[in-house]
Each structure stands twice: as C-alpha cells, then as structure tokens.
Design a protein around this nucleic acid. Structure first.
Lengths: 352, 352
DNA sequence: GAAATCTACGTTAGCGCTAACGTTGGCGTT
DNA sequence: AACGCCAACGTTAGCGCTAACGTAGATTTC
C-alpha cells in the first residue's frame, strides 16, 4: 500500500491470505464465506482501516448509493422540515444525500436533474409535481426511482407523497365563508413561483364561488417573507372601497406580516379582518394571537416519502400516489363563529 | 449501445471515428484535439445524449467532484444562509453537494466524515471549529481540502472562515455595560450543544468582569427556539431578588420569546430589562420593537468560504484563517443611552 | 458406493473512464 | 537532405471494485 493512500481491498486480501472476492463478500455481508474467515477478514479490515471506495463500488455496481434531492429553497421551514424527515431514514439506510436548491426555477431543476443522473443515483426526490417534460422523460428513461414530495398528482413520474393543496384551499374557503367572511383576498408570490399556492388559491375560489364572492389576489415579486406580507397587505388596504374582509396568505410568515400591518392600521383582527396563514410554522407557537392556519405534517411526510422511495429502490411494489391529510387550526385571527349579517348591517335583529 | 442504457464514450468514439481518448479530451476541453474534430465530437455527443458517467470519472481520477457539507441543522436560519451562500459558488464550479446534519452531535459528524471520505470528495465543509481528534486526523490524513466555517481558529484542520464569537460576546457585554446594565444573564442551550454560544458567553463574562458583575446563565435542554426562550426567561424572572436587568440570548428567536415573556410579565423592555439577541435573523425586520442584536454576514461568509475552498482545491495558496467582522445592531430592546446611576437611586443629581 | 448436491472459496472479465506514454506526419531549421 | 520538434492523435494500463462463472472437496442421496 503506497504512502498517503488508503488501503484497498487487495491489501486486506493479502493480509488474510484470501482472494479479493472473498474480502468483497465478507465486507458486504454476502453469503459464501465461512463465519470464521468472515470474522478474520473483518478484523483485518478494521485493523488496516480499510473502507470500500464508493466511486469504485458505484462504477462496478452500475449505480451509486447517492440520493439526489431538489428543493426550491431551505429558507422555507417547510422544505427544511421535509428534508429533515427524509434525512434520518436515508442516513440509516446508508444512502448519502446530494442536495440542490432550484430557487423555484424549473430550468435550474432541469439542469440539475441531468447532472444528477450522471451519478447514477439510487433515487431522486423532487419537490412538487410540476416539472418540465424533459425532467420527466430523463428520469423515466434512466429508470431512476423518483419521489415527488409535498404536492400530489394522479400521474407522478414514479411515486409521490404529498398534500392535496386544492382541497386545503377549499377547506380554508369554507371555513372563512362559514364564519361570515364574504370579501376574501389571497396574497401569494408571482404565478409559477409556487404552483402549490396557486392550487390553494384555486380551491379558495371554488369555495367562495358558492357564495358568489370573487377572490382578490396580490402577488409579491419577492419571496414569501414577513416583509412581503406587510407590503402586499398595505396595498390591499389602500383602497377602502375594495378592502377585503379576510386575507389568506401563502404561509404563516406572510400572514404574520399581514396581521401586524392590519393592527398597525387600526383594523381589528379577527373582526374587521380575518387572517389565515398556511403550514403551522414554528412562529405560530409564540404569537400572542395565534394565526388560523393549516397544519401540514411535514416531518411525517418526509420520513414516509423516504421509506416509500427506499422500498421502491429495493424493488418492492408501492403505492404510486399517497395523499397526506391536513388539518385546519382555528387560531385567534378568524372569528370564533358566524357574525350575523343582520347585526353587521346594524338592523339589531338576532338571526334565527 | 444496449437498450435502456446511456451511451458511453465508446459510442461517441465510434460515431466520429476517433479513439475514446480523443473524445475524452474533447469533452473535457483538454488540449490535443483540432478545433474541427472537437466541434464534430461535441456535436455527436450532444446528438447521442452522451454525458460522462461521474462514477467512472471519479474512479479514474481518484477523486470525485463532490463536496461534503456537514451542518448541525437547517432549522437554524444561520446554517441555511451559509449553505445558500456556498451553494451558488460550488454549483457554478460544477461541484455537487453532499449534505449531512449532525444535530450538534460530534459522534454523528465523525461517522459521517468517515463515510464521506469513502467518496474521495473534492472537499469537505464542517461547521465550527470544534471537532473530534479523529475527524481532524482523518481529513488531514486523506489530504482532503477542508473548510471550517462560522467560527474561527488559529489552527484549523485546513482552512477556516468565520466570526470571532468571543469578540462578539465582548462587544455585546461592553455595549450593555455602557448603557448601565449591571445584572446580566445569558440564555443558551446545554453546554457542548453549541460551542459558539459558549464562546460568546465567555466574551460576555470578560466584558462584565470589568464591572465586577457575574453573568447568570440558563441553558435550555431543548433547541434554541421561541419556546425555549420563553421557558428559560420565566425561570429567570421567578426569583425577584436575583432578577437580571438584561438578558443575552443565544439567538434572535430565543430573544423574541424572552422579550414577549417579559412584557407579558409586566416588565418594561428596555428600561426594566434589556434584551439582546444574536444573528440579525429575518424575524427582526418585522418586529414592532426590533431586537438589539449582532449582525452576522452569513451569505457573504458562505460564498467567501466556498471561493476559498475552491481555490484551495485548485492548489492555490490561500489564507488559513479568515475572520469575518460582525456589527452590533442597536434595536429598541436596550436603552438608548446610559441611565444615570444616581437618578436611578433617586438622588436627583445629574452626574458630571 | 457412484452420482448428485452443496459449501466455500478462486478466476475471469468487465464497470466507463483517464494518465501516461507512444506514434505519425507535417513543418521549420541549417 | 538530415534532423529535431510539435500538434494531433492512438495505445496501454490501470482506477478499485463486483457479477458471473469455475472448481475442489465434503456431504448427501437412493
């Protein structure tokens, strides 16, 4: 063994007087080695500090133990949670994670998928289900187990685990409508930058269509932050005649920014204005007035997705599309119960 | 070329009637190929959809284009920022990132470093400078370019880029002392879980030693969250006789939890209690009463670290240890100027 | 008790690429 | 004309490992 170079399988073979194939079998726990010899080989390997070169293993096996993961961003607690949920599972199974952040840019994702395939990864994880045709073709063509996570779809590239965002939007809309809100607004980011948010907006519109209410929409050109929530809310409040009576935000951070803005402007939350966030982020646990939001079980989604992808990698038959239920969390930023329309109009007559 | 298998260099060589070595040179942009032939080869490669198998490249070259990155967690905005700062730089240079989260556990880090070395990575990034002796030996022994980021050290494993946390602690302490605070407290997490925080505490103690003030310390057993900040603050306020007059938190999130707790308890911030966070996190931009905190340029640190590591990988001579300056941000959670001790004691005499 | 079977190995032939060195032919030099 | 030189290729020998097949001796089968 040359100086300053790690030991190879050959070195272990020589140290134990067996062929390198026997060492290979012993190291991998494959059958065909007597228990005594296996123990001796493992001891020698440990003594010499031998560890298989993963590049060589990957080449010989025609695929690596890398899992490629593409998420839009890690600034978003949602994706950090999902990643964490997956990490433990993949780690325990001996896979290493190659991470990319697409910054919500499909072209970046496409370029990265191509590069990732060059590693012959054991699997690939993409966020959401909206991907370029080329990405779909490449992954299917290369026959790489692929998990789409966070959103759901009836025809995933391979398998998917996620939330039904349109249904969540409907749930929010019905809740608001049942509390008597009738002038809804939605604050998100530029169309295409977050397809999930657009689906929730579609659900919201569907729910309010029953009440013949239009949904006002504002989209920030920046990312979905506290500040963006403030700015768009200021814009929504500018014209009193078109002022909404409730605002649904893309997430809790924006919603918090929006709520602060309303209160600074002297608008009472939840009576003058209903505020709804999304995701149930950490911040909500310490707000004096917790946000009404939708809880999304992200860690669970991550670990479930990872386990499913592992099963798929090992050739098991798994569900193609798994839907994760969400839950509406009624905070103090929406009314507790319907405020009578009549009272609202000052008629002074109780309804019912 | 077999069905359902990607083209190899051989296929391109046959399509263009040259040896595979010429294709290899053309693809890599290495000299020794005429411009005409190079163009023809690249055209054929594109047409066939040929892309070099990275596992084979890595094996033949005896090292991969992977960069291993170990961060404690991504829930912490700090590390998400640092990662993002590095990502762009590495991405543009054609490196792929293998990510691990150690959860602040040195043993996990050690195990991961060992596994990472099996990939013969082009470089490794670790967070902080506190690593087991074995990690240091392994990385130095394998001669892998290694960047330690976020903290600084005079004898890094290889190179380091970070903040001088003890100096930051001193800066905070002097600021508080200059404003007349004399009963400081520090709220962090269990010792060993965040060595940087301990260094800041040491700096804080050093600054207050000049005023013969002891620093009260509380450490949460949970992670540095809003809630943990609340809980430890409640504990600090429990005994009125030992109540501090200012509290430094491990980060802005904890500080926000602490500030909310004080105000709920009827303690005026900043007069009755000074509150200092750390890092200048996103939340601070939207708080009604911005926290006094220390701004740490994390994106800059990430991209600078990445550029330095790249230079190191390419064999350039670089500084072993780079210190990044921090800046104290005076928010509204510490007094604006010294409140006279005399006035404080009701003597009614102006000082000086 | 001879054939069939099994256990515990070894041998051969790659996986797909690159470093290092070899070869060829055209060109300038004297 | 003889030589050296260089650009533009090709050839050889791996990188470190595994799949697939081969084989010797022990064990079982009927």
């Amino acid at each position: 063994m040359p100086l300053n170079s790690s030991p190879r399988i050959q070195d272990v073979a020589e140290a134990t007087n067996v062929s390198i194939m026997t060492v290979s079998r012993a190291m991998r726990g494959v059958e065909g080695v007597s228990p005594a010899k296996r123990a001796e080989i493992l001891r020698a390997a440990k003594r010499l500090g031998y560890r298989p070169n993963r590049n060589a293993v990957s080449l010989a096996a025609s695929h690596s133990t890398l899992i490629g993961i593409s998420l839009p961003t890690l600034f978003n607690e949602v994706f950090a949670d999902i990643l964490d949920g997956m990490r433990r599972t993949f780690d325990m199974a001996g896979f290493d994670l190659v991470l990319d952040n697409s910054d919500y840019d499909p072209q970046r994702e496409e370029a990265w998928v191509e590069r990732m395939i060059d590693w012959r990864p054991a699997g690939v994880v993409l966020s959401g289900v909206d991907h370029s045709q080329r990405v779909r073709e490449q992954l299917r063509g290369a026959n790489i187990p692929t998990l789409e996570i966070w959103d759901r779809h009836d025809d995933p590239i391979d398998i998917c685990v996620g939330v039904d965002h349109e249904a969540a939007g409907v749930m929010i809309g019905r809740h608001l409508a049942s509390l008597g809100y009738r002038r809804p607004a939605f604050v998100g980011v530029e169309a295409g930058r977050d397809p999930r948010a657009e689906k929730r907006l579609a659900g919201l519109r569907r729910a309010f269509a029953d009440h013949e209410s239009q949904v006002m929409v504002r989209r920030s050109e920046r990312h979905a932050s506290f500040e963006a929530g403030m700015n768009e809310t200021i814009a929504l409040l500018a014209a009193p005649e078109t002022r909404p009576d409730c605002i649904c935000y893309l997430n809790d951070h924006m919603a918090f920014g929006g709520m602060s803005t309303c209160e600074k402007a002297g608008i009472a939350v939840p009576d003058g204005m209903g505020i709804v966030g999304f995701n149930g982020l950490g911040i909500n646990a310490v707000l004096a007035k917790p946000l009404t939001t939708v809880l999304t079980p992200r860690l669970l989604m991550g670990s479930m997705g990872a386990r499913l992808l592992l099963a798929r990698i090992h050739g098991a038959k798994v569900d193609r599309s798994v839907s994760i239920p969400t839950e509406l969390f009624p905070g103090q930023t929406t009314r507790l119960q319907e405020r009578s329309q009549n009272l609202n109009q000052g008629l002074g007559q109780p309804v019912r």
